[in-house]
Amino acid sequence: MSYGNVRTTYLGRLLLVEGHRDDWPKAHIASAMGFSREWVSTRVIRYRIEVEAG
């Protein structure tokens, strides 16, 4: 599935998910990457549902 408004690359999204897996708070990930906590939550949820494709 493709998302037309994605603002990061595959590797950027992978870093975000790895930060979450390493127990970084979503607020810290969002601040470090320049995104909102809601956007980070969306990416984490999509990753859980779609794994690598998300």
Rank of each mutant, 00 (worst) to 15 (best):
M1T: 13
M1F: 10
S2M: 06
Y3I: 06
Y3P: 01
Y3H: 11
Y3Q: 08
G4Q: 09
G4Y: 08
G4H: 07
N5S: 14
N5T: 11
N5C: 11
N5W: 08
V6W: 03
V6Q: 05
V6G: 02
V6N: 05
V6L: 11
R7K: 15
R7G: 10
T8P: 01
T8A: 04
T8V: 13
T9S: 15
T9H: 05
Y10C: 03
Y10A: 06
Y10R: 07
G12A: 04
G12S: 03
R13D: 03
R13A: 02
R13F: 00
L14G: 01
L14K: 04
L14A: 10
L15K: 11
L15M: 11
L15E: 08
L16P: 00
L16M: 14
L16N: 00
L16G: 00
V17G: 01
V17I: 14
E18D: 14
E18N: 09
E18M: 14
E18V: 13
G19Q: 05
G19Y: 02
G19R: 06
H20T: 06
H20Q: 05
H20P: 04
H20K: 12
R21P: 02
R21A: 06
R21M: 10
R21E: 11
D22G: 07
D22M: 14
D22H: 13
D23S: 13
D23G: 04
D23Y: 12
W24G: 02
W24E: 07
W24P: 01
W24M: 14
W24I: 05
P25I: 05
P25N: 12
P25Q: 09
K26V: 10
A27L: 13
H28F: 11
H28Y: 13
H28K: 15
H28D: 15
I29R: 00
I29S: 00
I29Y: 00
S31Y: 12
A32V: 03
A32R: 07
M33G: 00
M33T: 06
M33N: 03
M33L: 15
G34P: 01
G34W: 03
F35A: 04
F35P: 02
F35G: 03
F35D: 01
S36L: 07
S36C: 09
S36G: 14
R37C: 14
R37Q: 15
E38I: 06
W39N: 04
W39V: 01
V40E: 01
V40H: 00
V40I: 14
V40Q: 01
S41T: 07
S41K: 07
S41L: 05
S41I: 03
S41Y: 02
S41N: 11
S41V: 03
T42S: 05
R43Q: 08
R43N: 00
R43Y: 04
R43A: 03
V44A: 05
V44I: 15
V44T: 06
V44G: 00
I45S: 08
I45T: 13
R46Q: 09
R46H: 10
Y47A: 10
Y47N: 06
Y47C: 09
Y47V: 02
Y47E: 06
R48N: 12
R48Y: 06
R48C: 09
R48T: 05
I49H: 10
I49E: 15
E50A: 09
E50C: 07
E50S: 10
V51Q: 13
V51N: 14
E52G: 03
E52H: 14
E52V: 12
E52P: 02
A53W: 05
A53L: 12
A53T: 10
A53N: 13
G54K: 02
